[in-house]
Design a protein around this nucleic acid. Structure first.
Length: 764
DNA sequence: AGAGCGTCGCTTTTT
DNA sequence: GCGACGCTCT
């Protein structure tokens, strides 16, 4: 490194380029004009980005002229830290580096009035969205059985990410469900407006509106942000692309960094065209490819490459490394999820003893958050320190959401979703019927729900007893809202929450569960106090924005002596000497949904690519023959991806543990019913993917099981017994593997479609 | 208005 | 296997 002295000398631009390879150096020193950096995994991307920022600063660019947009908070934080180390904290602090959403939220707050919001607008997360959509559907009398609010949410979000307005959506709608969605979409937009609220997608769309509709604002930002940098460019959606283009229009000093092989957010609207179109939109762009990998061993890189090669759609790029060959990949074949977890624990212990890894060197990655449970139990039983980088659990809890909803009301009482959450929590005698009436009234009057509550006496058909309760509620909020300017956030929150009676309610219940909830409320309050300590300018409003845009309450304590556990999505951008990837099973990874859709399958493959390339020195993969899912024991076959991994990179010791059944080569790419692979027709696919036939027998993946789940043997014509429906006859079996369904006629002529993997059918 | 019971869907990944 | 939600009864 450049400086090891306690007082780092200020590096010159030339100093900064030292130790970079020619491509990296070019990526750093090409400061003027558009620049596209294709950065393979482990190619020193983060280093290049941070050095580039430092370089710009050393070239005399003022930090306030820089804007760095990242995809996750983690990445933004890391960038800020590392730039701070290069050029000093004070300078690093005044540059704008953050996620798209947080940077845009900040900009929108200062121009909220231009778009008809106030600067206290609330940000709605996915749950708030669904709540709003449900309310709207109820209002419109749309049956939620036929059209699920969650589905509507994702359609609306998809439309917004593609910059399709509700008017446009309505025009294009042909099916009934599309037309209904358009209706909900329109009303949903109106509802959010009235609530002075934006959802995540609005943060992007409103930025576009702001910049396209207000030339002076655009000009001011052009002048402010002269150098723009976008990380994880492959994961940006069209709306983000548009904003970035608008911001960069004047100076065209835009640097984007991405790797199409690591694009794993297509499901969220990420659009790979953004990379492909860059050269079209900026024909003068310099393109730099970072292809030397500094992170991983040759074995790991070869394995990653052998997997990603199976994707048809891919930009050409060759990643190479000077690093050692390294250890071969270990594969743990396990009977069930519990054994898998124990096996991983044992392997962790073993590697620590024999190869000198320490806890902080180790990460356990998985496809779905649900898998963390079994792994966590095992680590806890074994007394190994770990932490989960998840981000969901705490803020999803009812009492926590209620607490935050109360606080949100203080800042923005028009936030109807929050009103509805807490107005009867604890019970104030304001029930669903009353609220429905009030909502309808608010809709007619085109005002927010809270405004109706504030003048409750003028609303028809409200009993005076209920009106009194509503007045108390309004009073509670208004009274404390008046204190916003006077009290520090932490003490106001404390006092206010106390007054709502919410913590009291849980405390009085005095059950184990309720005390837990009470404790969680206290944790939120403590957290506010803590944040206030860290940042004396903290307001309730900035606190709430922070928690709505940051998924984890604390940043993962990376670097502490703990094993890190997270999803592969969460692992993007991180690296660990020893990486475990658990749950390498068909139906789990790739997920069942991706098994039939080639483009989803490619995304899963890229996700595995991301997982594998997190490893620096050693990689361990594992799968279980059966595991608990949906509270039921589910059988599965090893992942098709295992058979795509170059067998030369797998350790011989890892291939063993084959089950007692004779090795019958089976096409690894054909998902078939586990026990009868040769009698069920193979699904069409596989021509393109998968290694040469001769390699099959070496690889554990395609082996059929020793123990055959009974359900796989079920065929049409068989007599079966169902624990609930009794004895019946199988009429037909459709599908294959985990998704195989049987049509069974039970006595009395009753026909049922049953999922074989779930229905515990007994063959008679 | 609220308690109690049954049904359903859920586990993809995150800002 | 669990929690959210809707329906019914009080």
């Amino acid at each position: 490194m450049l400086h090891l002295t306690p007082q780092p000398p200020v590096p010159t631009p030339a100093d900064l380029l030292q130790g970079l390879n020619p491509q990296q150096s070019l990526a750093v020193s090409t400061t003027e004009g558009p620049l596209l950096i294709i950065a393979g995994a482990g190619s020193g991307k983060t280093r290049v980005l941070t050095v580039r920022m430092a370089y710009l600063l050393r070239m005399g660019v003022h930090p306030s002229h820089l804007l760095a947009l990242t995809f996750t908070n983690k990445a933004a934080q890391e960038m800020r830290d590392r730039i701070g180390k290069l050029v000093g904290q004070s300078e690093a602090r005044s540059l704008w580096a953050g996620t798209f959403h947080s940077v845009f939220a900040r900009m929108l707050r200062s121009h909220a009035d231009r778009l008809g919001y106030t600067n206290t607008f609330t940000i709605y997360d996915a749950d708030d969205q669904v709540a709003a959509i449900k309310a709207v559907m109820q209002q419109l009398g749309i049956n939620q059985q036929n059209l699920s609010p969650t589905a509507v949410r994702s359609r609306i979000s998809g439309a917004k990410n593609a910059m399709v307005s509700w008017q446009e959506y309505e025009r294009q709608a042909t099916s009934i469900s599309d037309k209904q969605t358009a209706q909900v979409f329109a009303e949903y937009e109106r509802r959010l407006r009235l609530s002075n609220a934006m959802d995540f997608d609005d943060l992007l769309l409103n930025m576009i509106r702001l910049l396209e509709g207000h030339a002076d604002v655009l000009e001011a930002y052009h002048d402010k942000f002269r150098y723009i940098l976008v990380d994880e460019y492959q994961d940006t959606n069209r709306a983000q692309y548009r904003v970035v283009n608008l911001l960069a229009k004047k100076y065209r000093n835009i640097c984007v960094v991405g790797d199409d092989a690591q694009s794993i957010y297509r499901w969220r609207g990420a659009d790979i065209r953004n990379i492909l179109d860059f050269e079209r939109d900026y024909p003068e762009a310099t393109v730099v490819r970072l292809e030397q990998n500094y992170r991983s061993t040759k074995v790991i890189l070869a394995a990653a490459d052998s997997v990603i090669r199976n994707n048809a759609k891919q930009l050409k790029k060759t990643l190479w490394t000077d690093n050692a060959d390294g250890e071969k990949i270990t594969l743990l074949a396990c009977r069930d999820d519990r054994e898998e977890a124990d096996h991983i624990v044992r392997t962790i212990r073993n590697r620590m003893e024999t190869r000198g890894f320490s806890f902080k060197d180790i990460a356990v990655l998985y496809r779905t958050n649900a898998q963390s449970q079994a792994l966590e139990d095992a680590l806890r039983r074994a007394n190994l320190p770990y932490h989960i980088v998840s981000g969901v659990s705490f803020y999803k809890r009812k009492e926590v959401k209620d607490t935050l909803a109360y606080l949100r009301l203080l800042v923005n009482p028009d936030d109807s979703e929050s009103v509805l959450r807490v107005i009867n929590e604890p019970i104030r005698g304001i029930g669903a019927t009353t609220l429905k009436r009030l909502e309808a009234y608010a809709g007619e009057q085109r005002v927010s729900l809270f405004q109706v509550l504030q003048s409750i006496r003028s609303v028809p058909q409200i009993q005076s007893r209920i009106a009194a309760a509503i007045e108390d509620f309004v009073n509670l909020v208004d009274r404390h809202r008046a204190l916003l300017q006077e009290l520090a956030p932490a003490s106001l929150a404390q006092q206010y929450l106390e007054a709502t009676g919410l913590p009291r309610m849980y405390k009085d219940m005095n059950t184990e569960e309720s005390l837990d909830r009470w404790n969680n409320i206290e944790r939120v309050l403590d957290h506010i106090a803590e944040q206030q300590e860290l940042d004396e300018t903290l307001t309730l409003s900035t606190y709430l924005e922070q928690v709505s845009l940051v998924s984890e309450q604390d940043d993962p304590k990376l670097g502490t002596e703990r094993v890190a556990m997270m999803t592969m999505h969460a692992a993007k951008g991180l690296e660990f000497p020893l990486v475990f990837i658990a749950g390498m099973e068909q139906g789990l990874f790739p997920l069942a949904k991706a098994e039939t859709d080639p483009s989803e399958q490619e995304e899963e493959r890229r996700l595995l690519y991301v997982g594998i390339t997190r490893a620096e020195r050693e990689l361990v993969l594992s799968y279980a023959e059966k595991r608990f899912r949906f509270g039921e024991l589910v059988y599965s076959r090893p992942s098709m991806f295992l058979s795509e991994i170059d067998p030369d990179t797998l350790s011989a010791a890892a291939r063993p543990r084959l089950h007692s059944a004779p090795s019958i080569p089976t096409a690894p790419t054909a998902p078939t019913a586990p026990a009868a692979p040769r009698t069920v027709s193979a699904t069409p696919r596989g021509a393109r993917t998968g290694p040469k036939r001769s390699e099959y027998s070496q690889i554990p993946a395609p082996e059929p099981y020793g123990q055959t789940p009974e359900y796989a043997l079920i065929r049409a014509g068989m007599r079966v017994k169902h624990p609930m429906f009794g004895v019946g006859t199988v009429l037909a079996v459709g599908g294959s593997g985990q998704t195989a369904k049987a049509t069974v006629e039970f006595k009395g002529g009753q026909r049922k479609q049953l999922m074989l993997a779930y229905a515990r059918l007994e063959v008679l």
